[in-house]
Computed example of a mutant assay.
Amino acid sequence: MAIDPNSAVSLSAQVKADILARIRSGEYAVGEKIPSLRSLAAQHAVAELTVHAAVKELQYEGVLESASGRGTFVRALPGDAPTDLAATVEELRREVAELRERVAAVEETQHR
C-alpha cells in the first residue's frame, strides 16, 4: 500500500493499516516475524518513528508482540486479539512463571 503524505490520515495510521492488511492477507502469518522497523520505514518511505508508532499501537491492541533482541511478531489476527483483561493478566502470569523457571534453571547451572 502506498503511503499518501497529503492524506488527512496520519502517516502512522496509514502504516498501521498496511501492516493490518498484510496480516489479514496472510503475508505476515500469526507467529511470524515482521520486517524490522528500518525495513518497514524504507518500504513506506517514512521515518522509523512513524513505523514505531504504528507498531506500538498494534502491540497495545494485542496484534503484535515484541521479543527483546528477536524482533516483532504477529501475535493474533486483527479481531482475534485478546481484549479481556482477565485473559491478558492470566497470559502474563504464565509468561512470568515460565521466565522464573528459566532463570532458576540458568542459576542452577551457574552454581554447579
Rank of each mutant, 00 (worst) to 15 (best):
Thr83Tyr: 01
Gly62Ser: 08
Ser12Asn: 13
Glu108Trp: 05
Leu11Gln: 10
Glu90Cys: 04
Gly62Ala: 07
Ile23Ser: 04
Phe73Cys: 04
Arg94Gln: 15
Leu99Ser: 11
Val55Arg: 07
His52Leu: 13
Gln110Thr: 07
Arg94Trp: 06
Val30Trp: 02
Ala54Gly: 08
Leu40Phe: 06
Ala42Tyr: 07
Gln14Val: 10
Ile3Thr: 09
Val103Lys: 10
Glu57Asn: 13
Ser12Gln: 09
Ser36Gln: 07
Ala105Asn: 07
Ser10His: 06
Arg94Leu: 13
Leu40Gln: 14
Ala54Ile: 06
Ala86Lys: 14
Ala104Phe: 00
Lys16Ser: 11
Leu99Met: 12
Arg93Glu: 12
Lys33Asp: 10
Ala21Pro: 03
Val51His: 02
Ala41Lys: 02
Leu20Thr: 11
Glu107Phe: 01
Glu98Ser: 13
Ser10Tyr: 06
Gln59Arg: 13
Ala87Val: 07
Gln110His: 07
Lys56Ile: 09
His111Glu: 15
Lys56Cys: 12
Leu99Pro: 03
Ala86Tyr: 08
Val96Gly: 04
Asn6Glu: 14
Glu101Ala: 12
Gln43Met: 14
Val9Phe: 02
Leu40Gly: 08
Val74Pro: 06
Ser68Pro: 12
Ala97Tyr: 05
Thr50Pro: 00
Ala86Val: 14
Gln14Phe: 05
Lys16Gln: 15
Leu85Gln: 09
Ala47His: 08
Gln110Glu: 12
Leu37Pro: 04
Gly79Val: 00
Glu98Leu: 12
Arg70His: 09
Leu40Ser: 09
Ser25Val: 01
Arg38Cys: 09
Lys16Met: 11
Ala54Asp: 04
Asp80Trp: 02
Ala45Ser: 15
Glu48His: 06
Glu108Met: 09
Met1Val: 14
Thr50Trp: 00
Ser66Ala: 15
Leu11Thr: 10
Leu85Ile: 11
His44Trp: 03
Val51Ile: 08
Pro78Phe: 00
Pro78Tyr: 01
Asp84Ile: 02
Thr72Val: 14
Val63Gly: 08
Asp80Pro: 01
Leu37Glu: 15
Ile3Gly: 02
Asp4Leu: 06
Pro5Asn: 04
Ser66Trp: 00
Val15Asn: 03
Leu99Gly: 11
Ala87Phe: 01
Val103Met: 07
Ser36His: 10
Leu20Ala: 02
Glu57Ala: 10
Ala17Val: 05
Glu57Leu: 07
Ala41Arg: 05
